[in-house]
């Protein structure tokens, strides 16, 4: 990778960074990112209104919106289209598919947010945002990032699972193993000393695979 490319990559937000602030026009009127302080946010982009994969995704995002709201998590969509285009599209989705899209959608006509969040990947398209997902916590820190290409619709169950896992980590200072779902055992941090490792190996409250891999039930 050239020095120029490294510089460009560093400018994009990464996990653990403060989410870049913005003030935008949406289908719900003007919104600032800071309006979401205190709630979690799933900020996602789609390539364009009135396109087939995006339409299936919008229906699917709306289907998980009630679950996300129960997790104190809001949804905010984005594409490089106008508010009028977004309005026409969500009205068309309601008319043709019977689904009312209730979350706001950013009209990012000048690509300001898309650029700040690295949602346009020129190798794929220089004009459309790809299928990016940024999970932003209640302190406005980026906790997870997912990128899918234009051709591939996202898995909504995974987005809900991801939010639940991130919130579990935030609330209980634990990690979650592969394919974790609420109710499953969580992973305790690896021991920081030899003494910790020895005591952990004999801890009856833990499911110890070996000194570095131990799981436990999560007590609410």
């Amino acid at each position: 990778m050239s020095e120029h490319n490294v510089e460009q990559a560093v400018s994009l937000p990464r996990i653990g960074d403060p989410a870049p602030q913005f003030e935008v026009n949406t289908t719900h009127g003007p919104i600032k990112l800071e309006d979401y302080k205190g709630s979690w946010l799933v900020l996602f982009s789609h390539p364009a209104d009135f396109t087939p994969v995006c339409t299936t995704e919008f229906v699917a995002f709306q289907e998980i919106y009630p679950q996300l709201k129960e997790l104190n998590t809001e949804l905010l969509g984005l594409s490089v289209d106008s508010v009028q285009s977004h309005i026409a599209w969500v009205r068309n989705i309601q008319e043709k598919l019977g689904v009312k899209v209730e979350f706001p959608v950013i009209a990012d006509l000048n690509k300001e947010v898309a650029t700040k969040y690295g949602m346009i990947h020129p190798g794929e398209s220089t004009t459309e945002t790809n299928r990016a997902v940024f999970v932003i916590d209640d302190q406005q820190v980026i906790k997870a990032i997912i990128y899918y290409p234009l051709t591939t619709g996202r898995n909504m169950d995974e987005i809900v699972r991801l939010v639940k896992a991130l919130q579990t980590t935030a609330n209980h200072q634990v990690s979650t193993p592969a394919n974790w779902n609420p109710g499953d055992k969580v992973v305790v941090p690896p021991p920081a000393s030899q003494q910790q490792a020895e005591e952990r190996a004999n801890d009856e409250e833990l499911e110890v695979v070996d000194w570095y891999l131990a799981k436990k039930e999560l007590k609410e």
């Binding site: 719900h28 009127g29 003007p30 919104i31 600032k32 800071e34 309006d35 979401y36 302080k37 205190g38 709630s39 709201k69 809001e74």
Partner: peptide, 12 residues
């Protein structure tokens, strides 16, 4: 209503 909606609407 959600907090983002209240804050943005009161600002408007």
């Amino acid at each position: 209503l959600p907090i983002f909606k209240v804050r943005s609407s009161l600002r408007e």
